[in-house]
Structures are given as C-alpha cells and as structure tokens.
C-alpha cells in the first residue's frame, strides 16, 4: 500500500474514532468531526446538482441542442431562492406548487392503483377449509389481521361493543408485528456497527500491521 493509501485509511479511522468518542462523553473531537460532516454533505449536494441538473439537464440541452424552452424550469428553479428575501418570498410558492402539485397528481393515482387495490385484492382470499388446515389458517390470520388493524386505526367512532372487541384483537396483532419490527430494527442497527468495526479492525488494523 502506498503512503497515500495509508493516509486515506488513517484519516477515515481518525474521523470514525472521533465520532465514536461521543459515546464516552461530548468532546471537541466529536464536535469538529460532526461539523465537518455537515459541511461536506452540504458541499456534496452543490457538486451533484451542478453536474447532474444544471449542466446536464439545463445548460447542455439549451446551448448544444437548442432546447431553449428549458429556460422555464430554470427560472422556476431560480425562483426558489426568493424565499431568502422576505418581500419576494411568496414568488417561491409558484415553483414549490409546481413540484408539489405534480407529486400530488402522481400520488393520487399511484396510491390507489399501486397500493390500495393490489393490497385489497390480495386480502380477498379463500377461507374454504377444503384447501387444507395450514392454508386456511394462514388465510384466516391475514383476513382477521387486516380487518382488525384497520378498525384499530379507525377513530371516527368510539371503540365500544363489536368495534371495541375487534380493535382489541387488532392491538394483539399490532403488538406481534411491532415486536417483529423491533427485532429487525435491532438487527439493522447492529449491522451498521459491524460495518464500521470491520473497517477499523481489517482496513485500519491492516494498515497498522503493515506500518509497524
């Protein structure tokens, strides 16, 4: 490994350890690393938007291919910055409305067509015992679980009587699902730690071993 290769790994390791030092207590190394991280991330956006949007989607098509009409989204984008001038900030609403309205239009269809319909359709399953015990049990679990969960989250009527009883069943289902969620969340968080420990032990450790 070259000197520069070692330097890269040691720099990363120093920053990683600076951040981990917060686990013991807050300290200047942590604060410095945290602020550098925020700055670099913001700077990353600038480079990305400059290359991927301003150059590739605006400047090149307008000047090289004569797509002059792209000046309009360019102006709409620039109007976003009117937010920083209190007198003119309302102008930025036009650009925002253009993006939000578009997303709402896509969502209005996709939420119903892409989520509600397929999920409802796959809940309409056969409960016929002739299909065998295991299949019937699975189907029952799905049907009862979906209905009771929906009722638990239905707040327009007081949860009493049949509604209350079904909501009670719903909460038992929800607890099992949230328990599974918690188990998975623990797994995810531990995995992220494993990734950083692998870096410190094998990459940084390897570099230490080579140097000393």
């Amino acid at each position: 490994m070259t000197f520069f290769g070692h330097f890269e790994i040691w720099l990363s390791a120093f920053l990683v350890l600076s951040l981990f030092s917060f686990l013991y207590k807050d300290n200047p190394f942590y604060k410095m690393a945290e602020h550098i991280f925020a700055g670099l991330s913001a700077g990353y956006y600038v480079g990305l938007i400059w290359q991927a949007v301003i150059i590739q989607q605006l400047v090149n098509p307008m000047f090289d291919q004569g797509h002059w009409w792209l000046v309009f989204p360019g102006i709409l984008g620039a109007l976003m910055f009117a937010r920083f001038f209190s007198k003119w900030s309302w102008i930025s609403r036009i650009s925002l409305a253009f993006v939000i309205g578009n997303t709402a239009g896509v969502f209005l269809i996709s939420q119903l067509h892409g989520f509600v319909l397929p999920q409802v359709v796959s809940t309409m399953i056969s409960l016929n015992p002739a299909q065998g015990f295991a299949a019937t049990l699975s189907a029952l679990v799905i049907v009862i679980g979906v209905i009771s969960t929906l009722i638990y989250f239905y707040f327009s009527k007081e949860h009493t009587g049949i509604l209350g009883g079904t909501a009670k069943v719903g909460i038992w289902f929800i607890m099992i699902s949230f328990g599974a969620h918690f188990g998975y969340t623990v797994m995810g968080r531990i995995s992220l730690l494993i990734g950083q420990v692998q870096f410190l032990l094998f990459d940084w450790g390897g570099s230490i071993k080579q140097i000393f």
Partner: peptide
Amino acid sequence: QWVTIVGGFTLLLGVVSI
C-alpha cells in the same frame, strides 16, 4: 422533465441556509 430540474434547486436551498 421540468419537475426533476426544479426539484434539483430545492436541494440547493438547504445549502444556502447552512
């Protein structure tokens, strides 16, 4: 296509704020 262009500028708003 226009929305993807305008959407890019929204990310820069955060940077200006920072």
